[in-house]
């Protein structure tokens, strides 16, 4: 039942993005409570004796009052994680064969992730790009950061064509602190180029996750008749036969996905394929898994 709230088609009917994020995350967390494996929230971990240099904010003064010994209180979720979301808003992201575009789907994921990060007191930031950086919200844990991020995600509109090289060069300037970098894109580029452009993001000790968003009709197009297709990014048109779409195209896209996964793995990038007709929970699950791994 809760899974239903992660269905993009259901989420599309919710107009407010913060409500979408809350619905997704709450639904997702409710599902997690039944799981013994994963933990989430500020769980108490241990007391540790104060050593010089420790932050006095974490001293448990109640224990000190009782015992006159200085102990620090440690929590499980306490890390210095930073989440940076790179949201691709190129024109190709506006494509859909149903009601939810790839951009909508990416918005839902982004909103859900920043909501989850804010719950975890992680610093979260956002970079919106197409062939250039369109918007940037610096990672922060300040009050009101969540609203700023959601607002920026909401404002993200489909732009022009995708060019990874240029914006990713700028991204490196924004990454001063190690954390998790999530890239939401349809990755219409050669896998080598993608891997080559994104790989430097790891150099600062970042965990990079590639969420590859594709519409089901992009993976397995179904044309009954010859059709004239027009590229939404550069407006070039091409006659396509159903036979080609059925055979060669599918083989090519499958090869592309495989290549991209391989290249990403080779470059130490986390790669997650997302079908926009499917629920969003794999994205959240992957994010939590990576975060868990970083502790």
């Amino acid at each position: 039942m809760l899974q239903r709230f992660l269905d993009p088609a259901v989420l599309a009917s919710i107009s407010s993005l913060d409500l979408v994020a809350k619905t997704v995350v709450d639904g997702f967390v409710a599902g997690l409570h039944r799981s013994p494996t994963f933990g989430f929230s500020q769980e108490f971990a241990e007391y540790r004796q104060y050593v010089e240099g420790d932050d006095l904010r974490h001293v448990d003064w109640n224990v000190f009052a009782r015992t006159e010994r200085i102990y620090l209180k440690r929590f499980k979720g306490e890390t210095n994680s930073q989440l940076l979301i790179l949201l691709d808003t190129s024109a190709s992201m506006t494509y859909t064969s149903s009601t939810v575009t790839k951009l909508d789907y990416a918005r839902y994921i982004a909103a859900s992730l920043v909501y989850m990060a804010s719950q975890q007191r992680d610093a979260a930031g956002l970079i919106v790009f197409d062939d250039d950086v369109k918007n940037y919200v610096a990672p922060s844990t300040r009050q009101g950061q969540l609203m700023r991020l959601l607002h920026a995600i909401e404002k993200a509109e489909g732009g022009s064509r995708t060019d990874f090289a240029k914006p990713f060069f700028h991204f490196q300037q924004f990454l001063h602190r190690r954390g998790i970098v999530v890239v939401l894109s349809d990755f219409y580029e050669e896998p080598e180029t993608i891997a080559k452009v994104i790989e430097p993001l790891r150099y600062h000790g970042n965990e990079v996750v590639l969420f590859h968003l594709l519409d089901p009709n992009e993976v397995a197009p179904k044309f009954r008749d010859p059709v004239l297709l027009q590229d939404v990014e550069d407006d070039t048109a091409m006659e396509v036969s159903p036979e080609y779409a059925r055979n060669e195209y599918r083989a090519k896209i499958k090869h592309h996905l495989t290549q991209l996964a391989d290249k990403a793995a080779a470059a130490g990038l986390e790669y997650v394929f997302m079908d926009t007709s499917k629920p969003l929970d794999p994205a959240l699950r992957n994010y939590l898994a990576i975060r868990q791994r970083r502790r």
Binding site: S92, M93, Y95, K102, D186, Y188, D215, E218, V227, L228, L229, Q230, D231, V232, E233, T236, M238, V240, Y244, A245, Y249, K252, I253, H256
Partner: peptide, 9 residues
Amino acid sequence: VRFSSLMFF
């Protein structure tokens, strides 16, 4: 018909 990318066509 508008399509996301003709990269593989």
